[in-house]
Design a protein around this nucleic acid. Structure first.
Lengths: 358, 358
DNA sequence: TTGAAAGCGCTAACAC
DNA sequence: GTGTTAGCGCTTTCAA
């Protein structure tokens, strides 16, 4: 075993750390003046300014963010308003993302509260928002499922100096500081490419939207547009694509009937996390139709593993909320910039890589 | 526009922030004693202990990590030893991952230096390591391409109290604090599932390892095992799978010859980032063989987009090094735990989702 | 066994 | 315009 001696001096230029005090000494002024120069606050004489800037140019000064942050010791309150996962299990991951961020930032003085609204009730959405507004937290994270109401409420938050971050879906608002989500049109194209690669002979496809009324119609339409655009661009092959809008309750009958009428269907693209419902329905028809759908909820994963669903597209709900909170927290604590928009990768999931995502 | 009045008192139990000073006051002891109890250091009388613990039980005390960290203000030095990207562009992303982390943690007093070794030279690997050892940084991030030498050098770092983190590939060492990489066997299975879904008639497949001598043979063998295991488990269909080991320079001829002898081949799985070489070679044969390979380097992405490569598996090299550095930095700064192993998701990439990853 | 006090680097209030 | 100083919350040293 060779053991090297420590070199006695590691203070090379690079790892030298300068403080405001150092700069003040070097420039022959006081810490206060250095601070004034650094932050352009207060009056500074030409002479002092020049002296400090000269030092600043010569060294690579990195203000100690921890010290700055410590000084500003306050508790920041962030409120996350999420769809209640009891109504749709998809949202459970969003809760987990928030919770993970919450536990990571707890000891930094970031306090996070989760609230729920009922996805079937605009009223509950508005009520919760009003209640949050009344608490006046420092920031709010929102799933803006109801477009019109969301725009209104975000404006109110803004008027009250409450920062708003949104995830899951874009809306036409100018006042949110950040959006984290996925490119929906693109994800439709991804689904199309997957479908193309597994379909071979009969080129009839079906797009199924489930419970459109309850969900965000735009959301689904964008996915459909992407899906169709991909096939439209293919020059050699002509696919026939039909769109079906069904209610959850009518799905099984509607699908059975449709497939009975048209036995040439070879692939189904489901635009929501309810993909498993289609897989369930198909199991009874004993057909060999391929399915591409969305989201890693338990029921979907089960079907994916036994290959009754071929591919799922992962919308990364947990990462969406986790990231949103991290952006807010790091902005409060360390003054980090928040990107206006963060589009997460469009993850393709099959039976073999699914475990690596959960 | 409705504007709500701020509620006058937001100090609910939850958002109350206690400091050791508060605890000291509540327990009727000094800050020093509270610190001794919290960290079990120094002697404390039964009485004081009980008093402090009583307070601690009653409140939810979150020590302010920023303050702790500030106190311990020192410059941490991390050295990353990476394969030189000039020899193999794959490694470029690793450099970027380190650089990103470096810029994020610069103002926290984390100083990061990147060094390169030549992937074709064990000697350069050893020399660089010795030089790093001599600098005695606080931590080292290593791509342990040469198994035996890596084990030795990691032991040396360990003996010198230098923390070592590794990425890209596992080795049989007990002294590294953390490994970030991908499950190789699993990724072979993912490739197999992809291949199965796009291959339909002729069930002959080829596995190609390129430049095995230069690369980590184990690495490739694990992927192959995973790939084969998937097809072995299929009961209904019999696939014939052949393995080809070729040198970069001989690839084109070897492949042309092979495909000429056996015209039934319908899919090729390439175990390295040199997948584009196979695509290049195939373009000249005008065949319709499907290709599944690895990594989002530029040449591969080009082929992916024009569909001469069907799928790529993304090993996330940037994320590997980025995460490794983040783990180390957050451990130094905030005493965060470092997981022993972090296996990144096995990302499936096709022509449509590739842009969302870069 | 304990309390008092200094100090990490930065900010902000205050006095001159 | 500028320097001084107190203080953020924690750790650590020193004196009692």
């Amino acid at each position: 075993m060779i053991v090297f001696y420590q070199s006695s001096n590691n203070n090379d230029m690079e790892s030298q750390k300068y403080t405001i005090k150092d700069i003040a000494n070097l420039a022959g002024v006081s810490k206060g003046t250095v601070d004034r120069v650094l932050h352009k606050r207060g009056k500074v004489s030409q002479k002092s300014l020049a002296a400090v800037n000269k030092v600043l140019d010569a060294i690579d000064f990195q203000p100690n963010i921890l010290a700055r942050s410590l000084k500003n010791s306050k508790v920041y309150r962030i409120c996350a308003l999420l769809p209640n996962p009891e109504k749709d299990i998809y949202w459970q991951s969003c809760v987990e993302g928030v919770n993970q961020a919450a536990s990571e930032f707890k000891s930094f003085g970031i306090h996070i509260e989760i609230r729920y609204f009922n996805i079937e009730s605009i009223d509950s959405f508005e009520k919760e928002n009003m209640s949050i507004l009344n608490q006046s937290p420092d920031a709010v994270l929102l799933a803006p499922l109801f477009q019109m109401q969301s725009i209104q409420i975000i404006e109110m938050y803004h008027a009250n100096n409450i920062i708003v971050s949104i995830f899951n879906n874009q809306i036409d608002s100018k006042f949110e500081i950040n959006y984290v989500g996925q490119a929906l049109y693109k994800s439709g194209r991804v689904a199309a490419r997957l479908m193309e690669s597994i379909i071979h002979e009969k080129k009839k496809l079906v797009i199924i939207h489930i419970d459109e009324a309850l969900n965000n119609a735009n959301h689904m339409k964008n996915k459909e547009k992407g899906f169709r655009s991909y096939f439209d661009e293919l020059t050699q092959d002509a696919y026939r694509i039909t769109t079906l809008n069904v209610k959850n309750s009518e799905l099984e009958d509607a699908l059975a009937k449709y497939l009975n009428d048209d036995t040439d269907v070879s692939g189904i693209f489901v635009s929501t996390s309810k993909t498993y419902l289609v897989a369930n329905a198909l199991q009874k028809t004993n057909s060999n139709v391929k399915i591409v759908g969305y989201d890693l909820i338990e029921e979907n994963v089960k079907h994916l593993k036994n290959k009754s669903i071929d591919y799922l597209i992962h919308q990364n709900p947990k990462q969406q909320t986790y990231l949103s909170i991290v952006y807010l927290a790091e902005n409060f604590l360390f003054d980090k910039n928040i990107p206006r928009q963060k589009l997460l990768p469009i993850d393709i999931i099959n039976s073999e890589n699914v475990d690596s995502y959960v």
